[in-house]
Design a protein around this nucleic acid. Structure first.
Lengths: 370, 370
DNA sequence: TCGTTTCCCGCAAACGATTGCGTTGGCTAG
DNA sequence: CTAGCCAACGCAATCGTTTGCGGGAAACGA
């Protein structure tokens, strides 16, 4: 079966003609902002005609004339990272209620693709960009900023550029994670950092070392290792390398949840038990973590709010480009699940002296695995 | 810090002026298809000028003139469903290499939002639509089809409309799932179907009843229950209701993975053990299922290929709207993990008579059943 | 030398909307 | 009765490209 022949789509001229008025009049009648310039009677006639013809204004023509588009671009490094879809929803929730459309593009962490997609967005007159792909050194973003493009960064920032950003409070989150592990009795804690070319990677890594020192624990450079990307595979690779070259650590705080998942893979292949032999903490609290084996202890960032706040800031910026670029840090919370427990052989002040399951935590507390 | 003043973006006229030619000449010089109409020398001059000015063609103006846009819309019901991001990647992979842009929109399963977003896509002159939101009765899709919009459905179809679709082989997948459970010794198997207003929901439900009969098992209508949406919450609700009104079933095949995850929630709250007391099979094999507790047995559909094939079909359709609308069914495979085991008290022909853990399947063990 | 072809390139009309400005007609005020 | 005003609407330019068409000049054959 083939497609029916496309019926010609009605234009403003058709509407005007049907209503017996000039296109200018039709245009004004159809636009609520200008409708009061038109007599009620004529306006009604035009709107009826539009209705009857099924008229839909051509946004392309409108954009060309007005150089606006009611559209903003959302630049995501990797849609398959479950962190991002909730953020996207957050962005959409506020932008849509404001009449904006959101154009989502996926760069796959590829610089060339990023450039191409952003270029394509710009050439379509998007009115602003929400960017989740920021790297510490990011010439493209610098250039866009210099060209006066309205932008808000999300989840990551680029410190040298005065672009507003909304991120989770990485430092506090990592400190909470380390604190939790220290409290459980761990003394040698490793960190599988995310890419140090991203602010999140670097900030979390720095916060890790600070926290470790603050707790009087081993601050051994050999205990932190960088993952090339924020992925399960790279997390696994990093942990393998760490296991090969260092020993004696009983816990790892991962740069994010995916890296933590990579650890799970290594545990499975090497026969290590989590949290029996080694504890893990993730970052982000992406969906479904509570159903893992073991449920992953992690630092929860408010995904939806992250997106929503970024969207609000972008709107502010669009209708007043001159305003100062404040950045916001959203509060995070440690959510303790089953992947953290006292280190093997640890003597807790309580009775049991073996590597027993961790104390059941109320609420999210899923049963700890042995 | 505020934004710098936006520098005026160069237009084709600027380029032409800089190169000392007419805009028409500049246009032709910049377009590879028409460049041979221009002397090599002039073309070089124009291209150099464009380069120097940092000229980027204005797609809006181009679209207005040509009524093309090199853009297709991708309509997703719920981006937070991990099934979709890999599909998106599949779509992008083929469309991008063909010079197309992909505009992803998220309808949140809301009919009004869907209409608005599709309208917005159309008014932007997208050249085609890949739609993952199809319902069995879908007036909007019918209307679009009648207007001659190039479309391809993905993952779901609408049977009455001759729109090409690419989906997984739902019937075979469900049959494999039921077969696997039957082989394990289950005789009363329940089905938590997806919404019966979607083809996937209905096809899988029908296939379930067929499969159950084919294996000579109980075909009790009380054993199938419909979930209102493809979500964890609705899966949980459905299983709760089923547990309340029926007993004696030892396995459930869920309409998809999210519904299966809902079952996990119910198990946790009701103290049931999976797979000890009850087995579960999902559908789709979305990411991270292998890390669940227990790892979810499911039917894997080729996400990436699903998207890629849909994109290819759309391209075909765009440059030849007249071609017949063939639909394709992509093969699926049962991947057996840890959420399925013999029913409690089942005497297997092998030695052990208790509800022991399932035989360890090596790796991802995509052992095709029967 | 004179057509005729070929090669480059410019002219101008679109595409479909928005909007500043001008024009019209009806009304009030002086 | 005329000046002045306002409301309602039309005119035409414009946004930045693309593209059919035509023209001028060079090249070619006879």
């Amino acid at each position: 079966m083939t497609n029916p022949t496309p019926s010609p789509v009605p234009t403003l001229r058709d509407v005007a003609q049907a209503a017996g008025v000039h296109t200018a009049t039709a245009s004004r009648a159809l636009n609520p902002k200008t409708r009061q310039q038109i007599s009620a009677e004529t306006a009604r006639r035009v709107m009826r005609a539009a209705q009857a013809l099924g008229y839909q204004p051509n946004s392309v023509a409108r954009s060309l004339k007005t150089s606006r588009s009611a559209t903003v671009g959302l630049v995501i490094p990797d849609l398959t990272n479950p962190l991002f879809p909730p953020i996207v929803r957050g962005v959409e929730s506020v932008l849509e209620s404001d009449g904006y459309n959101v154009w989502i593009v996926n760069t796959d962490n590829d610089e060339e693709r990023e450039r191409a997609k952003i270029e394509s967005l710009r050439s379509r007159q998007v009115e602003g960009l929400i960017v989740a792909t920021a790297r510490l050194d990011h010439p493209l973003l610098r250039q866009l900023h210099e060209q006066g493009v309205a932008m808000v960064l999300i989840n990551r920032q680029v410190p040298d550029l005065p672009i507003p950003a909304v991120t989770g409070d990485d430092a506090t989150g990592v400190a909470a994670a380390v604190g939790h592990l220290a409290e459980l009795g761990h003394t040698r804690i490793a960190h599988l950092s995310g890419p140090l070319g991203t602010s999140t990677g670097r900030v979390r890594a720095q916060a890790f070392r600070h926290a470790v020192r603050d707790h009087g624990l081993a601050d051994d450079p050999a205990l932190v290792i960088e993952c090339a990307r924020w992925s399960e595979e790279d997390g696994a690779a990093a942990l393998r390398e760490l296991l090969a070259r260092t020993t004696g650590f009983t816990a790892v705080v991962a740069g994010n949840d995916l890296i933590a998942l990579g650890c799970y893979d290594v545990f499975a292949e090497s026969g290590l038990s989590c949290p029996g032999d080694i504890s893990v903490i993730g970052f982000n609290d992406m969906p479904f973590l509570d159903k893992l084996r073991p449920p992953l202890t992690t630092v929860a960032v408010p995904h939806h709010e992250l997106g929503a706040e970024a969207a609000r800031m972008l709107l502010d910026r669009i209708d007043d480009p001159g305003r100062p670029a404040r950045s916001v840090l959203l509060p995070v919370t440690l959510v303790v699940r089953g992947s953290t427990a006292p280190p093997p052989g640890h003597h807790h002040e309580a009775a049991d002296a073996t590597a027993s399951p961790p104390p059941a935590h109320p609420g999210n507390a899923t049963a700890p695995s042995t």
